[in-house]
Amino acid sequence: MSGLSRFLWERRDEILALTGEHLVLVAVSAAIATAIGVPLGVALTRRPGLARPVLGFANTVQAIPSLALFGFLIPVPVLGGIGARTAIVALVVYSLLPILRNTHAGILSVEPAVVEAADGIGMTRGERLRLVELPLAFPIVLAGIRVAVVVGVGLATIAAAIGAGGLGVLIYRGVATADHRLILAGALPAAALALALDFLLGLVARRWGPRR
């Protein structure tokens, strides 16, 4: 066994526990971002006038350097402070844009003739959304969630800076002690987690996506 493998193997309990924390940070924030982003994205297609300012605002928020955003959130009451909750708030902010943008684009990508047919045969707006628009937009919405999750896994390593735990803990410790094996002990599982989640969501897309 090489030096690095043994190093990782000896710390497997800690790595596993931190991977679990990391996964929770990403999963919870992606779930919240989806719960906000999908309805908001749909709403923006119904109010075209709002689409540009809202998407523009989300773009701008996305441009805030992530470490700075984590820092800004610390003094904010309720949402902020030290720990996982603040990290999740920041991760939701970053995950929101791809989900929001893709939901908006996905609904708008449904062919006008299909939308006209849905109206013309007598679907209510809710039926049209549930039976036609969301199923047809699903691959694009899910692609947005995939981007949000993969980016979220990387960003969540920074959450360790505000005491939220996760694999960033190992990376920060490695940076502080100039021990690249420790950096890798955090970075390798994070990369593996990102790839694994991307793969899983790809399976979801294939299994539950609309067939044409």
């Binding site: 299909v114 036609v132 047809l136």
Partner: peptide, 20 residues
Amino acid sequence: PVALRRRIGFVIQEGGLFPH
């Protein structure tokens, strides 16, 4: 409108079928 449309058949070019 919704009840009215359900009582009226509607055909458009290419049928406007639901592709999924």
